[in-house]
Every structure is written in C-alpha cells, then in structure tokens.
Design a binder for these strands. Structure first.
Lengths: 147, 147
DNA sequence: CTGCTACCTTACGTTTACGTAAACTTCTGA
DNA sequence: TCAGAAGTTTACGTAAACGTAAGGTAGCAG
C-alpha cells in the first residue's frame, strides 16, 4: 500500500491537493486528528507521505459527507488507527489472538461508519424522490397550461 | 394558507415535532428564512400551520443533508417561495405567461437542488463501497487467520 | 553566501448557528 | 378570575473550525 517511497510533501502542497489550507492541516494535528508527523523537531518543516494525505482526505470526507464534528470523526477513525497499529504489530509476528482482536475491533468501527453512511444515503434518496415528484408536478402544470 | 384548517401550533410544539428548539425557529425567522407568521402584533404568540412546519423541516433537512449554510438554504428555497407566490397569484387569475414564468423558474431551482442531492449521493455511495471493500478485506484476513 | 519563498509558532480574531438569562406578557385550564 | 406554564423581546454568551497577522526560521536556487 504505502510501499512506494514517494517524495515527501510539504504542507502547502498537501493543502492544495485537497483544496484546503495549511492552517486546517495544522489544526487537525493540533487537536490530535493527525499525528505530529515524523517526530518533527521544533521549527522544522512538516512533511507528509501520501498515506498522510489519504488520512486528511478521509477526515474531510467524513466531516463533509456525514456532517460530523471533528471529535466524532476522531472517534470513527479509530478503525484506521487500529489497522495502522496492526501493520506495525504484524511485523513483529505478534500473538495471533491479539491480531484477531484488533481486526474484529476494526470491523466494529467499520460497521458503525457503514450504518451512518447508509442512513444518510437513505435520507438523501428520500429527499431526491421528493424533488423529482415536485418537478413532475410542475411539468404537469406546465403541460396543462398549454392545453 | 393551506386548504386544511388544522389547529394552529405554538412554537414549542413545532420545535418538539422537529426535534429542535424554539430559539432555532425564532432565529430562522430573524434571518428571514421564515416569514414573520401572520403579521403578528408585538408580543403576541407565534402560531404555525403545518405548511410552516414543513418549511422548517425542509430547511433543517437541506442544512443537515447537504451541509449548506442557512444563507445557501435561503437561496435554494426560492423555489418554494416561488410556488407559494404562485398559489397566491393564481387565485387572481393572473396572466398565464406570468404563471409559466414562475413555474419555469421553480423548475430551475429544483434542478439545482437535484444536482446537489445527486452529487452528494454519489459521493456517499463511493464512500460506502470503499467501506464495504475494507470490511471484505478484514474478513479475508480473519479467514486466513483460521487456516 | 545570499536572497527568496514557504514554513513555523503564538496568539488573538471571526463567522455561523444557535444557547442562555432576565424581565415581562399572553394564554389556558380550574 | 387567576395562577402557572409557555411565549416574547433584548441582549449578551459560546463552541467549533478555522482565518489572519506578526515576527522569526528552514530550505533551496543561484
């Protein structure tokens, strides 16, 4: 997945890629949504991998599409965190029971997200069909106007 | 306003029906999203018809599902406003050309809303399928763990 | 080395969408 | 009629999610 050693990105580049601002990314780091990348020394420039970029994109998507607060996003993203942790632990041939526990936990978090997403989608579909009905009604009246 | 003479509701009832607060409804009125119902005299209680309730519900839905600001909602709801205006004008057997103009305008606003809704829905579906993929991947790894 | 640009930290400012409090009034059931 | 619940106006408060400005630094091109 992240096995491709891509050139590290600076905060401005990441921001532009995602249609946001450096301030927003720093803010996410500030509130703990993003890890202080690469144990940076004070004053040094932040640099990001494309895995980091994906995480920011995911944050913004959950925020926008589900209308979650950043705190709620933080809770939901525990699944990603668990998977990341898993990748680290797997390298050390960890106890299979522990691996199973982590996987099952991630599964639970993903189920939560899916529930939210599907609920939202149903609501949107409802709204969409109401709009279509309205449009049809108007078209009908326009037709009657011609008669 | 509506043809069914339902018992007028007070602000607290409306709020509870919609899972919100009186303050929110007053706020919507304050910023012009809701008309100051029924040319109320200073200090008298507000009262609402079920048409009014529907409007508030619609506002909240657009706000939540599409993530719009109240100002943006206001712009989108011009379609409803046009339809309401239409109903008034139709009673006075207005010029058919004018009616057609209003209808076509409402049609445009509804098309706007539909575009927004559909775009959102597609994004949600994308997110949903990614989640399903992740889940499948985890299940697969759990299966391998058993082997 | 020099200069320029993007970045860093700190800290206060801003907008949206209400929450909350106070002092008073309108309604409604007994 | 009258008490108490619910409503009204006015006005200040607030939380989330950044924006913005100031004063200094890192990093790279030449």
């Amino acid at each position: 997945m992240s096995t491709t050693p891509t050139k590290p990105l600076r905060i401005g580049e990441v921001a532009e890629m995602l249609g946001t601002t450096p301030r927003t990314i720093r803010y996410y780091e500030e509130i703990g949504l993003l890890p202080d990348a690469q144990e940076r020394e004070q004053g040094k420039h932040r640099c990001y991998t494309d895995t980091d970029v994906e995480r920011v994109r995911e944050i913004m998507r959950l925020r926008d599409l589900l209308g979650l607060t950043l705190e709620e996003v933080s809770a939901l993203l525990e699944a990603e965190d668990a998977r990341a942790q898993l990748r680290r632990e797997i390298r050390e041939t960890e106890d299979p029971a522990e691996i199973r526990r982590i996987l099952e936990q991630a599964l639970g978090h993903i189920a939560n997200q899916l529930e939210l997403v599907r609920h939202r989608r149903r609501e949107l579909e409802q709204l969409e069909s109401e709009l279509v009905a309205k449009r049809r009604s108007i078209h009908k009246r326009l037709g009657e106007l011609d008669a």
